[in-house]
Amino acid sequence: MIRININGRDYDVAAEPDTPLLWVLRDTLGLTGTKYGCGIAQCGACTVLVDGEATRSCQLALENVGSAHIRTIEAIEQDEVGRKLVEAWVEVQVPQCGYCQSGQIMAAAALLSQNPHPTDADIADAMTNLCRCGTYNRIAAAIHHAAA
């Protein structure tokens, strides 16, 4: 059993130590808001916060989570930054298929927590997740909106 803390709650997980956090979240804990897109750190659909840092959970093995506080999209509205982001995402009508958007919002949450008023260049640096529906411009607009 490996104990991890997700969204403020401890879970004891019975899985191989090399299991990526992504699959622990999705299949073991049923937290399916975090998405699988590539499994090799290319797409960012699996982005969660690890002690506030945007992290691709397909690359984080269960054994390396340790005592870190993990935050997933399921808890996005539990703080002010998250609530603002969700409102901005709806206001700007960002999502199309929506599949990448959990990861996008988690990346944006990390950015805004560290940098409440990011410039376009800051957004370009921080927001590297793929979106096949091409919502990049609206994502940037929504981040500015949430930061305003």
């Binding site: 969700v86 009508q93 958007q101």
Partner: peptide, 27 residues
């Protein structure tokens, strides 16, 4: 008019085929 699914898709609540699960299911 705003999309009906914008909020669910901004909070991780939208359910795709990949998210579904059944009792007793094998992967």
């Amino acid at each position: 008019l705003p999309r009906l699914d914008a909020r669910d898709k901004s909070t991780g609540k939208a359910v795709y085929a990949i998210d579904q699960k059944l009792d007793g299911m094998l992967y």
